[in-house]
Amino acid sequence: MSYLFLKGCTELLSCRKLSKNFHDYLSSLFTRTVYRISRKYYKLKNTSDLVGDFLQDFYEKLYKLCELVLKNTNQIKSIDAYVNQSIANFLKMKFESFVKEKEKILSLDEKVDKSGKGDDEFIEIIGYEYEEDTFSKVIAEDVFEFFLKECEKKKTDMKRYICSFISQEISNEDRFSNPNWSDANKYKIRERTKKFIRDFAEKFSVEEKVMGLVLKKFMSEICKKMNLNS
């Protein structure tokens, strides 16, 4: 399977054209993954009509994906695992939007600890120095885009909340909070932000290592820009 993907990517980058064989391969892979995810997470039965639409959206990311894979082929332990995980993450995001629009979203059996216990253990992933292996880094690139979209769905200034929260966790100082926030508001914002990050990781099945890389990327790209403009 990895041979087909690598061959298709090579042709795509050299000819700037998607071959029929590569399209058929991706279509088959998408069909199986859509079937599995739709039933495991969303309990949807008839999803065959969605495969084509989701696949077309995925093609927008395919060129960059191929570049990353071909550049790091020798460092990725399993091309098949990487491709499957990238497609699974992409489809989870697409299904989340789909079910909300159709008002058919069902419980994902998210086990949220209402007492708040365990939050600090989870948030320690921000400061932990993970080895940035190629596989986790590439997955984090995809998850980062999903994370930004989830932030933008919030009516609150979630990006600033996250920057404020991460800066406190890493350096014990807050360069992003609004001077008008009272101590009570700061506490509520902190708790709301922790829940947002935790819920995102659980909803999209993001492992701690990848989530840590996502938050570090958020700090270096989003927060740094915000700090310069403030």
Rank of each mutant, 00 (worst) to 15 (best):
S171E: 07
E173H: 08
C151E: 14
K149Y: 03
D174H: 11
E150C: 05
N185E: 09
I166A: 08
N180A: 14
N180W: 13
F165C: 05
E169N: 05
S177K: 10
M158W: 04
K159N: 03
C151K: 05
C151R: 06
C151A: 13
M158Q: 04
K149H: 01
N185S: 05
K153V: 12
S164A: 13
K149T: 06
R175Y: 15
K159C: 07
D183C: 09
S164M: 08
W181T: 06
N180G: 12
N178H: 10
K188W: 10
C163P: 00
K188L: 13
R175L: 15
E150R: 01
E169D: 01
R160W: 09
C151T: 11
P179D: 07
T156P: 02
N172W: 10
D157E: 07
E152T: 15
W181N: 09
C163H: 01
I170V: 15
I189K: 01
I162L: 01
K154A: 03
N172V: 09
S182G: 09
S171Y: 02
S171T: 03
W181V: 03
Q168C: 12
T156C: 13
I162M: 02
T156H: 07
D183G: 07
A184C: 02
M158D: 02
A184Y: 06
K159I: 04
K149F: 02
E152P: 11
F176D: 05
F165N: 14
K188Y: 12
N178S: 09
C163D: 00
K149L: 06
S171K: 01
K149R: 08
Y161V: 03
W181I: 01
D157K: 06
K154I: 04
K153A: 12
S167Y: 06
S171C: 04
E169A: 11
D157Y: 02
C151I: 14
E152I: 14
K149S: 06
I170A: 13
I162T: 04
K159Q: 06
P179L: 11
K149Q: 08
N180I: 11
F165D: 10
D174P: 01
K154Y: 00
N172F: 08
E152H: 14
K159V: 04
D157H: 04
I189W: 03
K186P: 00
F165H: 14
F165V: 13
S167P: 02
S164R: 12
E173L: 03
N180Y: 13
D157R: 07
I189R: 00
A184K: 09
S182F: 10
S182T: 15
Y161P: 01
I170D: 13
C151P: 07
K159R: 08
N180L: 14
S171R: 01
T156I: 15
K159D: 03
E173A: 03
S177P: 05
N185M: 03
W181L: 02
R160E: 11
T156L: 12
S182E: 10
A184T: 05
K149E: 07
N185C: 03
S177R: 12
N172G: 10
M158A: 01
E173D: 04
C163R: 00
A184E: 11
S182Y: 09
S182N: 07
E150A: 02
N172T: 13
K149A: 07
K186L: 05
R175H: 14
